[in-house]
Design a protein around this nucleic acid. Sequence first.
RNA 1: UCCAGAGUAGCUCAAUGGUAGAGCAUGCGACUGUUAAUCGCAGGGUUGAAGGUUCGAGUCCUUCCUCUGGAGCCA
Length: 467
Amino acid sequence: MSVADLLALEGVAVGDKVRLQGWVRTRRDSKAGLSFVQVHDGSCFDPAQVVAPGELENYTDAVVHLTTGCSMIAEGTVVASEGKGQSVEVLASRIEPVGMVEDPDTYPVPAKRHTFEYLREQAHLRVRTNSFSAMARVRHCLANAVHRYFHEHGFYWVHTPIITGSDCEGAGEMFRVSALDLENLPRTESGGIDYSQDFFGKETNLTVSGQLNVESYCLALSKVYTFGPTFRAENSNTSRHLAEFWMIEPEIAFADLAADADLAEDFLKSIFRTLLNERADDMEFFQKRIDKTCLERLEKFVDASFERMDYTEAIARLEKVVADGHKFEFPVKWGMDLQSEHERWLTEEHIGRPVVLMNYPKDIKAFYMRMNDDGKTVAAMDVLVPGIGEIIGGSQREERLDVLDARLEEMNLDKADYWWYRDLRKYGTVPHAGFGLGFERTLIYATGMANVRDVIPFPRTPRSAAF
RNA sequence: UCCAGAGUAGCUCAAUGGUAGAGCAUGCGACUGUUAAUCGCAGGGUUGAAGGUUCGAGUCCUUCCUCUGGAGCCA
């Protein structure tokens, strides 16, 4: 049975015979011949305490040599615990070591404190620690909550491609996908690489966003979303960026920017509510050991309404606070992109709640965002949250072909590259909107973890893909 | 990519230019049910790499590598 069921007394009672399988967290010996073995199996935060009496036939040969990381099977009786840390424990009648740790002296994750930096170098074993097993369960819970929310609200999950033939997704540097022999590249007559001989007969890359593809499904299925890995070959070395990360991108038809903002707010609150309800054990750990404010932050988040504010208004308020003597490193001026420090001031100090900033200057935003009537701004939005800054970026999409074409031209983009995207505006176009949410940043916000590399099992960053 | 900091025992860190140490972990021992157990003993080092200065370099200089934090890019 699982440790979770045992500790919750689910389908089991004191006096029952049980069998546990898992890994040793610690072994403590007491007087001559009695050991306490903490066993974890991933089913919940707490390990189970297995009491190994000295009378076990393999006690001196095997049990006292169990060390952190060994795998084992324990059979025994559920008893009320005489100790303080747990209500029930298993009094073992048989302990079977399955896989020993060959050299405890060099086991990379012994029972002691480790820095996250060190554990990143032991990514294959770090999930055996409290922090990373808790994170794995929280990650699963939130991913599951994402799918449940959309399913219950009539959205379809669309599997947009990982390999893309569009070189026009426009969200950053891409990883090339090629089956060509790098040591012996085929050349065109003019000396360039001849991609017509490559696997797909053209240049292909890993996707940086499923948005363009999901828009096509939106204009037939009305409410859709993607949730999968995306790839950016940017040389970003920060605690908030990965080369491979998971992104959630809903897209809704017959919808404007206000509806998009409403969806973002309802969605975020819903998944965090699910997390608080379903992973209280792991969240208690994050609260206690990682970030003392994370529970309070989430509880406030699911109750507070998001402030909505136009970019132009935000600039006015930033200019006012600067005039009142507040110092920023970067100047504030209409038309500029907000810096991290500006976003954080708005959401943390000025409003004190999540803020949806809307209607940005067109010159700092992407070609597909819908032009507003003022001719200066586009229907874009960013959701800013205290403690992390931007967590969502979204927009109403430009559904008018003539306006879209004008924007493509203005930004020196080739209309031919966007032929199928433009078709969507020729055949039954509708106003539609969507946003992108970085899943790892959501996890950081929820748990208070400081680095995005510690919320994904095997992080990919510049110069690092060791596992 | 830019700015700053760091790299010494398995891990976390000390060490004024002059004999490389501690805590934790690990092993052994002690301890009447432990909970980050406690106490004692022990083993454990090419000080990131290559050059240079010096009687002498973990320490100073140069170059490089790696990591961390911040910025930019963004999610």
